[in-house]
């Protein structure tokens, strides 16, 4: 009896689907899900100087959150990420709009390709180049003093603004592509309808195009905001190590100080803060994410 039942079950679509996805799923479970569970577990373990004592404690969280330095760093990370997200998405929208609505179809691929190329070239060197551009005797200052616009070079590095510009550059394609995709999906006859019904071009944009493009904008916000908060290289190189963000603090505790439970608690805290902000943002914008009505 077992034979035919088994044969039938192995022929189902669900079984074949699970079978097909199993190698990738097992890899993700072992290398991603299990480590994430472990880091949460570690954050509740005791630190025994270079070893870890497997005893439950909430001390790491108390220690992290009662530390004013940690709170300042976390607050700075959130502020930088919000700033970077606003700048990146704000600059990306007009570009995505231009590619989708203004350019002829045959030029779109070329522009998208041009926008993605810088993203695939050495991340570290790209970040470092902003140091070259913004530094005291760097490119911008050479131009400004050379043209006599300023008498003394401007101090631009080691500031939150410099970190934000560099990160906005790093994440540019991440913001443009999702917005472009949602703009491409908009039925152009909606816009004609808006104008035929007597709306101005601006009001058509405001009441038709923008709401329909919101899923892409929200996607762009998520894909820029979440990784930005964990950036290690930019605060290190552009902030000169004087403006650490949460990733730098995690690295300190994990490698230099070797307090893995505290490092884990910081990492988990940062993830929870990011998740809370991301969820809040999604909640506030949930009306845009529902499918088109009727």
């Amino acid at each position: 009896m077992a034979g035919p039942v088994k044969t039938r079950w192995t022929r189902t679509e669900a079984f074949n689907g699970y079978l097909m996805i199993s190698p990738t799923l097992i890899y993700a479970l072992l290398m991603l899900a299990a480590p994430l569970v472990m880091i949460v577990a570690y954050s509740f373990f005791k630190d025994g100087y270079l070893t870890v004592i497997h005893e439950f404690t909430t001390e790491n969280y108390v220690q992290a959150w009662s530390d004013p330095i940690f709170r300042a760093i976390l607050l700075r990370s959130v502020w930088v990420s919000v700033l970077v997200t606003a700048v990146t998405v704000g600059l990306a929208f007009p570009v995505a709009y231009f590619i989708s609505f203004v350019l002829p179809a045959q030029k779109k691929s070329l522009w998208l390709f041009l926008i993605t190329i810088p993203f695939w070239t050495s991340y570290l060197i790209r970040v470092f180049q902003w140091k070259v551009i913004l530094s005291y005797n760097g490119v911008i200052n050479s131009v400004l003093t050379g043209l006599g616009i300023v008498d003394h070079p401007l101090q631009m590095l080691n500031s939150v603004g410099a970190i934000a510009v560099t990160l906005a550059h790093s994440y540019a394609p991440f913001a443009i592509l999702p917005i472009f995709v949602s703009l491409e999906k908009i039925d152009r006859s909606f816009l004609e309808a808006g104008q035929d019904l007597g709306e101005s071009r601006f009001m058509t944009f405001w009441r038709v195009t923008l709401p329909l493009a919101m899923p892409g904008v929200i996607g762009a916000v998520m894909i820029v905001f979440i990784p930005t908060i964990g950036d290690y290289v930019t605060p290190e190189l552009i902030g000169g190590g004087k403006l650490p963000m949460v990733a730098n603090m995690i690295q300190q505790n994990m490698l230099k100080i070797d307090n893995k439970p505290l490092g884990s608690a910081i990492a988990v805290s940062a993830m929870l803060v990011v998740a809370a902000i991301a969820l809040l943002f999604l909640m506030l914008n949930r009306r845009f994410l529902r499918g088109p009505k009727g």
């Binding site: 799923l25 993700a28 480590p35 472990m38 880091i39 998520m222 979440i226 964990g230 950036d231 990492a267």
Partner: peptide, 21 residues
């Protein structure tokens, strides 16, 4: 969703959690 998660997860989280394991 789980498989695509590294796309949005900060890389430092991936790195640190793998290091611990």
């Amino acid at each position: 969703g789980l498989i695509m998660l590294p796309l949005v997860l900060p890389e430092i989280i991936v790195a640190v959690s793998l290091l611990i394991v």
